[in-house]
């Protein structure tokens, strides 16, 4: 198995007046292709900050992030952080963050269009993934016409349609009821297995964490092996 993502001594701190707060501290993490990894922890433990750094929407103070052999710093120095996000990452947020003016299928297509895919083929691929997440009948609905669970499934489709190196999910079931959470977990698991996706999920949800092959726990900015 090849290493897809590797972090070394990743640190990020915020200044709160006179006090410096270490949000994440010396994180070392390695993800292999096809890994399903979960990180649990209390609110404020630094889970979302870690995910934001891995998704290159936040930069670390020190340490390195390497994806498929190329470091995040390299992308930053070349002024091409968007390329890092475009080439390697699929992001699922706690709030689905769909584009409200675009239909479900158009939201998913967007992921492919920004990667240079032609419109027709992007549409076909998007519909295919939306079928897999059980939204065949809802492809032409706008986010405002979809339920929370459906919107989150569209967000999953958008995150995986371009077959990214890593799918980062930040509390993806945080706003879902138990029924939708069940559905979501099943779908994510299916997609991960069938597409050999590398998934890193940050969650409070024990049920979602349980399906991961590897489980971590975060406390005070430090990454610890989850207790069995």
């Amino acid at each position: 198995m090849s290493v897809v993502l590797k972090t070394e001594n990743l640190t990020k701190s915020y200044r709160d007046g006179e006090i410096t707060v270490d949000v994440i501290h010396n994180i070392n993490l390695e993800l292999q292709k096809g890994d399903f990894v979960s990180i649990q922890g209390a609110s404020g433990a630094g889970k979302s900050t870690l995910l934001s750094i891995l998704g290159a929407i936040l930069l670390p103070d020190s340490g390195t992030v390497t994806v498929n052999g190329k470091s995040l710093t390299q992308y930053k120095n070349e002024g091409r952080l968007h390329e890092y996000r475009k080439q390697h990452i699929g992001f699922i947020f706690q709030n689905h963050y769909l584009l409200p003016d675009f239909t479900a299928v158009e939201n998913v297509m967007m992921s492919l269009l920004i990667r240079g895919e032609k419109r027709n083929s992007a549409r076909e691929k998007s519909i295919e993934v939306l079928e897999k997440v059980g939204l065949k009948e809802r492809i032409n609905h706008y986010p405002s016409q979809l339920s929370g669970g459906e919107s989150q499934r569209v967000a999953v489709a958008r995150a995986v349609v371009h077959k990214p190196d890593i799918v980062l999910a930040d509390e993806p079931t945080g706003n879902l009821d138990s029924n939708n959470t069940q559905k979501f977990i099943r779908i994510l698991q299916d997609l991960q297995k069938t597409n050999q996706l590398t998934v890193l999920v940050v969650t409070h949800e024990a049920e979602l964490a349980a399906v991961a092959g590897r489980k971590y726990f975060m406390k005070d900015g430090k990454l610890l092996d989850a207790p069995h």
């Binding site: 929407i57 968007h82 996000r85 990452i89 992001f91």
Partner: peptide, 12 residues
Amino acid sequence: KDIGILKSIGVS
């Protein structure tokens, strides 16, 4: 918000 979403998925 759209701009934030687009940038998070890789738009420059």
